[in-house]
Design a protein around this nucleic acid. Sequence first.
DNA 1: TGAATTTATTGAACTAGATCATTTTTATAG
DNA 2: CTATAAAAATGATCTAGTTCAATAAATTCA
Lengths: 192, 192
Amino acid sequence: MHDLLLSHLSKHISLSDEEAAKLTTYFEPKVFKKKAYLCRVGEIFREATFVDQGCFVTYSFDKNGKTHVAQVASEGWWAGDIYSFLTQKPSDYFVESFENSTVLQISKAGLETLYLEIPKMERYFRIIIQNAYISMRERMMAAMSKPAMQRYMEFLEAYPGIDQRVPQYVVASYLGIRPEFLSRIRKKLARR
Amino acid sequence: MHDLLLSHLSKHISLSDEEAAKLTTYFEPKVFKKKAYLCRVGEIFREATFVDQGCFVTYSFDKNGKTHVAQVASEGWWAGDIYSFLTQKPSDYFVESFENSTVLQISKAGLETLYLEIPKMERYFRIIIQNAYISMRERMMAAMSKPAMQRYMEFLEAYPGIDQRVPQYVVASYLGIRPEFLSRIRKKLARR
DNA sequence: TGAATTTATTGAACTAGATCATTTTTATAG
DNA sequence: CTATAAAAATGATCTAGTTCAATAAATTCA
């Protein structure tokens, strides 16, 4: 049940067997059907959510009613809105499951207790935020300097298989283009 | 000398007078002339750098030789490449002073020692990274959903005065547009 | 299964922003 | 203070990506 989480943790910190055992008691398994919401705009994102199976999309609507995808998270990623979770302020995003999914969740309070019991976890979450920051910065730089087709190809490399699991308009929005244009890019790529 | 740093810290954590006094010994004041480099591509960004006076620009060149500005930092901000500092891996950026500047610096090792002496500082830096992440995310979403003129106006609001202190091509690059186009935007805005 | 709904494709016209080349303005060093 | 270099402005042209509307394909669910 907690295997994927533990193996993910072990990439960043090393835990003894007792620590691992203790840790798992803090994370509650939960199931979400496709099209369930972990959070809606204005709500606080209360549970840090590690994806064990399935996938989640974090997105918002702008004033023109257009969707903007902030994150796509599948197995082995943290889904949702880190910022709302950490600050316990209302989120600007919807977080929705795009497949039937199973996750492991921990509340802010639970996490604070866990930090006291296993201080290494503080380090782990600092690294997670750090990585979120750097990947956001890279995406930002890419959006500004690379044409959409190249961004799409790099997306396919970076998140293999994801394009089969979420609708194309989600991918388009993640890339910062309109679905019609992604369709044309795909057509061009197919012809070769 | 350390006033600005202390008042900045006090926005996020509260320090006793002794802690404040101790803390200041960890931060080394340093002066950089205009056009000095805190770091070049491929170098490790070794000193976390708090800007007391002046301003710094973090930027890279893409394969077409175009500049991309990742950050502009003036008084009261941390300048440079957080990621390279935290991981002590080579930076992908240049960090250059655009005015004669004075800063306060602390090395990674110094920071680790400081964490042991004043654990609250760990919290402070977690918040700093968190904020860096959220502002990057906002900039990302803005780049994808708002036209350049609006982004420029919001930039002027968010960083008042900065547009007078760095060349316009830096602002343009920060906004993700070419300097010629920023020039046209400014002309349009002036006529009203 | 098949009707209803959602998603993806395609075409034609359009536009925000880029590119390139030239000129003007501003800053800088000596 | 002036000569030189760097930055900004401007005009003309171009293009990556958008918009809108219509059609086709794929999902969903009763």
